[in-house]
Design a protein around this nucleic acid. Structure first.
Lengths: 346, 346
DNA sequence: TATCAACATGTAAGCGCTTACATTGCAATG
DNA sequence: CATTGCAATGTAAGCGCTTACATGTTGATA
């Protein structure tokens, strides 16, 4: 009996079932206080009984707003963005907005494609990661009047950003490493193509090394995808050098843990034979042995701030266009002094 | 000049700009071969120039299909589902479908809410995790005629499933543990409320223990959320017992790694003083020292199979209603024999 | 009792798109 | 040359919803 029509029920069906007009049903759903309690009950009962859910498309079409915001992150395969995104979405939902997440696989073309998909789905605003993307992509968003904020770094252009200074943070860490006595550094960097965070971190380390008078030959850099495996592989490569680097600075914690694993396999003690640093301070960093010396990024705060900024942009409130989130160096177990015998080239 | 109207362009705008009817523009976008090349070029140029993207709502409304499927996973905060979801979406996109992901936080009410959100957004089908949910939720989907498949386990009801036998896999692992000589087991289980995977794994271990004549008192079970921290806390709790368990079986790898960290803090060697097992074989398992003995779940294959099944359901092709993905025990470093002196109660 | 708020509800016009159907133009055919 | 068939394009009717506006109902007031 309930199964009268096997199609998905529409507003009309509900209206008929409740003996009211579609307008009344719509009001019950959107501004219940405009409808008298008795009617409302009748309507809600019908809604319940028919298993009615409003059609988003119709609703968006008619009301010209979606209460949806989109986020395009490079990858979901990885804890880096998970934490920040979580608080981003929590903040959003406090404002009654829904989050749609898409991933680009670090590919600008796919990022653009996802922009169009989200725009088409009516996203009121977008969260993007970083600022390295073709001019045409941002131009597209501007044309459509879709506000967006970049996160995870501070952009250089004229957009809105909530992030931190990857370059400065990496430089500070490198300075500390050098202050510990290291002169032969190496770096396992993230892949810098269209990834300003990775590029900035590398640049920071390079700058600090140069400032300390370290020759570029004493700072080999290998770029690796953010996986344990690639980190391990790069580490294997770096450890072939003679003399070996006394410290390997990694573009993020995942790489560092992969490197650590390889060090273990090669019979190298960390930090006795080789020191290691990470970046991000994801949970993982505190769970390996020894724990990772790394840079903490307050992901939750960043996600929250990004959500607030985006909402302000959407509602056309004034915003501070650039919010910097401070980072902190977390000293744990993987950074020690260089080996006593390793100061001299062999 | 390009900025003539600052509103988002519509099909109409494009049609006017190209000097054709809306129908022709629509055809250019959806079945280009029905339009002669010359016209098509003119239209595409206008599309490009105006920065037009079709409005998803309008399109869904008019064509009554969305080419969208939804997935509701308990959490994104965690690598467990990432891998499987990734291949799920890759397979989907090979069939021209878009994936919308939502998370429930292991809460059936929020899962239901997300079902409605996705249904409203026009999802043609849904991927759900497991089978533990109120009857009313599945009833809702059936009423709306939205096909769904459960993954990560084999359901008992009459739905469609792609998964593995959590109970049997856990039991097999426990049998192996017991065969190694362990008699004092403990378990850090996932929280079983509305989580059939966690419940099944616990049940499997319990059954194996019982079959081996191990007293329930020699199998304490603590439930913990899937975080390093909670795993560590539970481990701390379990290690207070006297005599201590000689092995702690964990509901997943994250818990096991947390437990391992706590063991280290307590000065207990793994597996010398206490053995550990995990479940899932996520990347993490191969990266800690010693590496985790665990159960491998072929997540990629599962995601792929789930996508294929769902597509068949959507297109009303016949399907095998239950696909079992085999699991394998991966023996690595965290499971050893019990301590020599630990066979006797103190 | 007539009048008028104030409120509850109904009516109907689109929102941007797809698509069945109608129209047009043109080449091939009788 | 009239006819036919086909390919390319146009016309217009909705898809399910919101909302401005119209209408009806009530109770208080003059």
């Amino acid at each position: 009996m309930a199964m009268n029509e096997h199609a998905k029920p529409t507003l009309d069906d509900v209206a008929r079932a409740a003996g009211v007009s579609t307008a009344t049903v719509s009001r019950c759903l959107n501004s219940p206080d405009q409808v008298i309690a008795l009617t409302r009950e009748r309507v809600m009962l019908a809604v319940e009984r028919l298993g009615y859910t409003p059609d988003f498309g119709g609703r968006a079409l008619a009301s010209r707003r979606t209460n949806t915001v989109g986020a395009i992150i490079p990858t979901m395969d990885n804890a880096i963005f998970a934490r920040g995104l979580q608080s981003f979405q929590e903040t959003l939902s406090r404002f009654g907005k829904t989050l749609l997440v898409a991933s680009s696989g670090y590919d600008p073309a796919r990022e653009r494609q996802q922009m169009e998909a989200l725009a088409g789905r009516g996203a009121d605003g977008l969260l993007l990661i970083g600022s390295a993307r073709p001019e045409s992509s941002t131009e597209y968003l501007r044309r459509r009047g879709i506000p967006f904020v970049g996160a995870w770094n501070l952009g250089s252009g004229d957009g809105c950003f909530v992030g931190f200074d990857n370059r400065a943070a990496a430089a500070r860490l490198a300075e500390m490493v050098i202050a510990r006595g290291h002169r032969r550094l190496a770096m396992i960097a993230g892949i810098s193509y269209m990834n300003d965070r990775a590029a900035d971190r590398t640049a920071g380390v390079r700058a600090a090394a140069e400032a300390a008078g370290i020759a570029p030959a004493d700072l080999p850099v290998i770029e690796a995808a953010y996986t344990f495996e690639d980190g391990a592989r790069a580490m294997g490569e770096l450890m072939k050098a003679n003399p070996r680097p006394t410290v390997v600075m990694c573009g993020n914690d995942v790489l560092a843990v992969g490197a650590m694993q390889m060090a273990r396999e090669l019979g190298l003690k960390v930090p006795g034979d080789v020191s290691l640093t990470g970046f991000d301070d994801i949970d993982l960093a505190g769970v390996v042995d020894p724990k990772l010396t790394t840079v903490r990024v307050p992901h939750r705060r960043m996600g929250e701030a990004a959500a607030e900024m985006l909402i302000k942009l959407i509602t056309k409130q004034p915003v501070e266009r650039r919010i910097e989130i401070p980072t902190a160096i977390i000293e744990r177990g993987t950074l020690g002094p260089p080996r006593a015998d390793s100061g001299h080239k062999g």
